[in-house]
């Protein structure tokens, strides 16, 4: 990429939405664009520190809580409130959209976030395992602080994997890659692991409902639930990894 990055691309990079590998590489290699990107990121951070930011955030919460409470609100309007908590996070201008990669066992999020399956004893990344093996999940969450992982099985069953027994997502340890401990023991049957990353806790049942819709959509398209596509959710980062479970020896 010979030319410099446009403001549109810099905004995408600053928001973690850039997908073009050449643009990502250019932002690392070109000192001019790196500087400009740093300015864009600083502008975003500054906006979040400004007093009006909190006022905008509060107004959005108030106005939409009020409409949400109206029993006669039309269906299409009520549906939008599924996204209201997510949009609260989006006010922070942090929007991460999943970018499924059909051939990879790990789907990376825009902005570099991802979920990986690691073999518990040695931490090796795996895409397949046998029943009984212990694995642990690891997420790269950028600056998202809460994670939730659910497994979709070939049957279409959806189970919470992490944090087990919790009604909502849990805070992950800071750092470039957070391990979601404790891990779990692999049971028979391949699964698609869907990670939801966010700035605010997410309800397990809300995300389960989202996955149910995606599984239904995959079935309508003649695909397996394992191939259900992770739809972008405003304010929620998504990543997916498929774990193929081979028959035990």
């Amino acid at each position: 990429m010979a030319e410099h990055l446009s403001k549109l691309v810099l905004d995408e990079l600053a928001a973690g939405l850039a997908t073009d590998a050449a643009a990502l590489a250019h932002s690392r290699d070109c000192f001019q664009c790196r500087d400009r990107l740093a300015q864009f990121v600083e502008a975003r951070n500054q906006a979040r520190r400004d007093a009006p930011f909190e006022q905008v955030f509060a107004k959005l919460k108030t106005s939409h809580a009020a409409v949400e409470s109206l029993p006669s609100a039309p269906k299409w309007r009520r549906r939008t409130f599924v996204f209201a908590p997510a949009l609260a996070a989006a006010v922070a201008l942090l929007i991460y959209i999943a970018l499924p990669h059909p051939k990879a066992d790990v789907t990376r999020l825009k902005g570099g976030a991802s979920v990986r399956v690691l073999r518990a004893p040695d931490g090796t990344a795996v895409s397949s395992a046998r029943p009984g093996e212990k694995v642990v999940l690891a997420v790269t969450s950028a600056d998202q602080t809460f994670a939730l992982v659910m497994a979709v099985e070939a049957s279409g069953d959806i189970n919470l994997v992490w944090p087990l027994g919790s009604p909502e997502s849990a805070r992950v340890a800071p750092g470039p890659e957070a391990r979601l401990t404790p891990g779990f023991q692999v049971t028979p049957g391949s699964m698609a692991l869907h990670a939801f990353l966010s700035k605010e806790p997410l309800k397990v049942e809300t995300m389960r409902a989202q996955l149910e819709r995606e599984v239904a959509e995959a079935r309508r398209a003649g695909m397996s639930p394992l191939q259900a596509k992770a739809a972008p959710l405003v304010g929620v980062g998504r990543a997916m990894a498929t774990l193929e479970v081979k028959p035990g020896s």
């Binding site: 549109l8 905004d11 995408e12 928001a15 939405l17 400004d50 009006p52 930011f53 006022q55 905008v56 107004k59 959005l60 106005s63 939409h64 309007r77 549906r79 939008t80 996204f83 209201a84 949009l87 989006a90 006010v91 929007i95 959209i97 739809a231 972008p232 959710l233 405003v234």
Partner: peptide, 26 residues
Amino acid sequence: WDAVQEVFERMINSGSQFRGDAHPMT
């Protein structure tokens, strides 16, 4: 800031369009 407020209102009320866009920043 008034504009930011209004843009978010529109995003909330037309979330499906936003989610359906291949390039959300556009």
